[in-house]
Amino acid sequence: MPVKIGIPRALLYYNYFPLWNGFFKALGIEVKVSSRTTKAVLDKGVKQAVDDACLPVKLFFGHVIDLRDSGVDFLFIPRMVSVERKAYICPKFLGLPDMVRHNIPDLPQIIDVTVNMSRNEKNLFKALAGAGKQLGKSGFAIRKAFKRGIEEQERFHRLNRLGFLPHESIEQMENGLLDQNFPPNLSREMTIALVGHGYNIYDQYISMNLIEKLRQMGVNVVTPDNLVDDLIEERSGELPKRMFWTLGKRMIGSAFHFMRSDHIDGIIHVASFGCGPDSFTGEIIERHLRRKRRVPLLNLTIDEHTGEAGVITRLEAFVDMIQWRRAAQ
């Protein structure tokens, strides 16, 4: 029976799952993803997590518990320090494997290799090779599997550029969606850019199904993940000082692009309550937008509450406003 490794469907799952999945599969390891977020998963996470963590981190705990209970041999929780030169991921990700280890009992072995590409981009290989070695694989097999993983990740990026959203790209790569009328980003009356952390906007539960709600209102949804990295990097260069949070930089860079695009009718900034970087990315985006004053902006804060009324009211009013503005032009 092949060894089973569990990957939580949370946090950077929405950014790097194809890489991890491709790598482990090529090594002959069975990859088990936790089930979709439900109230039960979130409740378990909130109960076990440290109190002052943000909602997505608490949710990650829930997914870890879900995997533990489903019986996996290993848990893959890499310590993501940096994924590009001189820029970092949020400190909560640095401590993630430790937080999990010390707060959740009876866990299977955690593979917590450190990914730190801030000085050297080859570190990614080193990290995954470390994971492969812990699983008892040979150097040759690891190199081959790494190549496979990178290929999968590149395919994922290509699908995202085509207009799929990351969770749809992953679905497409795993199960195939093309024959079910995808990509869905076609012929809708307006386009709204959702700017936020992937783990907040693509998780249907904590985002309160934001993307589907917008689509039902006839809105085409685009996100930073649909853009090429170089474009985001270039646009974020407009800041007087280079931003050293990778995820925040992606939000700001893409917002700067979207606010100039003729195809974008509005921008929604999604922040999770208590997120330090989000609190100022929203502010920076708002200030820059105000100087241009062309694209309407909505700030949405998500937290543990499940009362959808507040979110629906704001979304409806935002879409109304765009329609109204158009009718007046």
């Binding site: 009013a317 935002f318 109304d320 503005r325």
Partner: peptide, 13 residues
Amino acid sequence: RNGVVADFAMNTV
């Protein structure tokens, strides 16, 4: 602005 909603905000939590 000009009789059309240009921006709005509501109190948060």
